[in-house]
Design a protein around this nucleic acid. Structure first.
Length: 108
DNA sequence: TACATGACTTTTA
DNA sequence: GTAAAAGCCATGT
């Protein structure tokens, strides 16, 4: 329907226990270089539907980006990620080298 | 219609 | 490694 639909599909395809960055989502969704749209789509999800694992989407720094206006709300996403089995660094960051989603190369 | 804002990324210094 | 600026596009006023 629109760019957002592609983003939602990509986010849904993130396996549990893994995370993906905005740039990666944008690339997989076919909108390379438009990571801002991904973040904007996430904002829409939070107020429209909760059927999407938005908590698995993080920034390129491996840090959580819940909302710039909601201080402390990051705890929710952190808790959800911990439920997925993802651990956090001393600085509250995620080890992308291990937890970043690495989709297969269409071997199916 | 046009301007300003925003859960970001990447490059350059 | 940190800091600043440019680029991208949809949404709201």
């Amino acid at each position: 329907m629109s760019t957002y639909d592609l983003i939602y599909k990509t986010v849904r395809q993130i396996p549990p226990g893994k995370v993906a960055t905005y740039g990666q989502i944008a690339d997989l969704a076919g909108i390379h270089g438009k990571a801002r749209l991904v973040g904007y789509a996430m904002f829409q999800i939070d107020t429209t539907c909760n059927d999407i694992p938005w908590h698995r989407v993080i920034n390129a720094k491996g840090e959580i980006s819940y909302s710039t206006v909601r201080e402390g709300g990051d705890y929710l996403q952190k808790h959800l990620l911990e439920e997925e089995g993802i651990e956090f660094n001393s600085a509250g960051k995620i080890n992308l080298n291990q937890y970043q989603w690495q989709p297969n190369f269409r071997l199916c």
